[in-house]
Design a protein around this nucleic acid. Structure first.
Length: 477
DNA sequence: ATGTGC
């Protein structure tokens, strides 16, 4: 990115003044090195989002931002329905409610090392992974509607997990005001056999060791100690979310001119929040959020079954589950007034600070866990939201992962999946994946340095580092 | 991300 286009406000905050059709400024949180490596497309996309109707405060980008469809991945934007604000399918992303959950296991590293290969093989046999993978659950048309309305709560009611799990999921495991009727038959059909599957791309189930502690008292409060083993699951709403994104994007492009919206880029197709189309998309998107929450809940059940075969002393309890592709209704302070806003986070994590009323009682004083998935073979991090006084950054948001810095095509041409698996195995990290090409596309070298991203997020005041996690076993989609 | 590509 051309830094001469930006106004530097601090080492970690850069502004794009509102010019031309921009209604608000752009704000990018990153240090100089990350910014220099960012595609100029991120700059263009932040500016385009700033031109959408009803946007408030600023168009934000997180330190892991990269070029996405319409909105940058790592983008945050909030819209006021009272001021003609819009909802955008491209602002949520295709993989609606893609997210990460992390589970305690009660195990330490030595216990896993003793059975590591068997654990990897058992998880790989149990966890459906890859393009078009199907799962152990098959849903009739009416059952699908129950799932779309009930989310992880529905999954727990079906026997996949416990009530205690629900406490540690955003919105207690269920998005309200989901409208299964707004989801097309085609989207439902695609999802019938895909519940409890990882999918492909950057999705994974990883066994990790807590390797470093940065904030001892918060780590203790979250139940995290050095040497402990945790499990993280990264996946989303599979074919259903993708189908909903595709269909509404098409409809929003066609309808935009009827609503009098001048699109800076057709990929930013959107509809007024208060319009019929906007409301229908929100209902379908919330159903997809419930699909993703139910999916991660069923995968948790499968992981528990796999652990029980190899390490029966393990007890998998949920630390937290956070979605990073969403549009949510939240109340935030804008120009001294509390407003009801529709906050789009695309490749960005909610990061509420300590004391927020939406956090579970048991961890409210610590702040919301922010789960940052690293690239394959590198570290992941647990952060917590921070309250930087009244000056809440980006509506309480933080980064979501390392962020790509190379296209999938480029990565697949440069690396061989098998060589990467062997190299990681030599370092004690066991990868199991159905796809060599998929592994090559996810080569660690195709991603930004996750440590630089997390350090920038902390320095910018978006969130606070708590622990680092290193991979032991990775089931890769 | 995706029964991967209008």
């Amino acid at each position: 990115m051309n830094l001469s286009l930006l106004e530097q406000h601090s080492d970690f905050e850069w502004h794009i003044p509102a010019t031309g059709k921009m209604r608000v400024p752009g704000i990018i949180y990153a240090e100089r090195g990350l910014l220099e490596d960012m595609d100029n497309k991120v700059y263009e996309q932040v500016c385009h989002v700033a031109a959408l109707p009803g946007i408030v405060s600023a168009s934000f980008a997180m330190p892991d931002a990269h070029w996405g469809y319409g909105f940058p991945i790592g983008g945050v934007a909030a819209f006021d329905p009272e001021a003609g604000g819009v909802v955008s399918a491209g602002g949520v992303g295709f993989d609606i409610s893609c997210g990460v959950r992390t589970l305690h296991t009660g195990l330490v590293r030595a216990q896993v090392d003793a059975v590591k290969a068997r654990l990897a093989d058992t998880l790989f046999a149990r966890i459906p992974a890859g393009v078009g993978s199907t799962g152990p659950v098959h849903l009739s048309a009416t059952k699908i509607d129950d799932m779309l309305a009930g989310g992880a709560k529905w999954a727990v009611d079906q026997g996949y997990g416990t009530q205690a799990d629900l406490e540690r999921i955003e919105e207690r495991g269920m998005a309200h005001h989901a409208k299964p009727a707004a989801v097309s038959p085609q989207a439902k059909k695609r999802q019938r056999d895909e519940m409890g599957t990882l999918g492909s791309g950057n999705h994974y189930l990883e066994v990790q060791e807590v390797d470093e502690i940065y904030a001892p008292s918060i780590a203790e409060g979250l139940g995290l100690q050095r040497g402990q083993i945790v499990v993280s699951i990264h996946c989303g709403s599979r074919g259903l979310g993708h189908q909903i994104g595709t269909e509404f994007l098409r409809e929003m492009v066609v309808e935009a001119k009827h609503y009098g919206i001048d699109l800076p880029d057709r990929e930013l197709a959107c509809a007024p929040i208060q319009s019929e189309l906007g409301q229908r998309y929100l209902g379908a998107m919330r159903a997809a959020i419930n699909c993703a929450l139910a999916n991660r809940q069923i995968l948790t059940h499968l992981a528990r079954e796999a652990f029980s075969k190899v390490l029966p002393q393990a007890c998998l309890t949920l630390l937290y589950d956070v979605s990073h592709n969403t549009c949510k209704v939240e109340h935030h302070l804008v120009d001294g007034k509390t407003k009801r806003l529709f906050v789009h986070r695309k490749g960005a994590t909610r990061a509420f600070g300590p004391g927020h009323p939406d956090l579970p009682d048991s961890i409210r004083d610590l702040g919301q866990p922010v789960l940052i998935g690293g690239s394959m073979g590198t570290s992941s991090y647990v952060l917590v939201g921070s309250n930087e006084g009244a000056d809440e950054r980006a509506f309480g948001s933080a980064c979501h992962g390392a962020g790509r810095n190379m296209s999938r095509t480029h990565a697949a041409a440069r690396w061989r999946g098998r060589a990467i698996v062997e190299e990681l195995a030599s370092r004690g990290i066991l990868i199991r994946s159905p796809s060599d090409r998929g592994v090559a596309e996810e080569a660690p070298g195709a991603y930004k340095d996750v440590q630089a991203v997390v350090d920038a997020a902390q320095a910018a005041g978006l969130a606070r580092k708590v622990v680092r996690l290193v991979p032991v076993v990775c089931i890769k989609g």
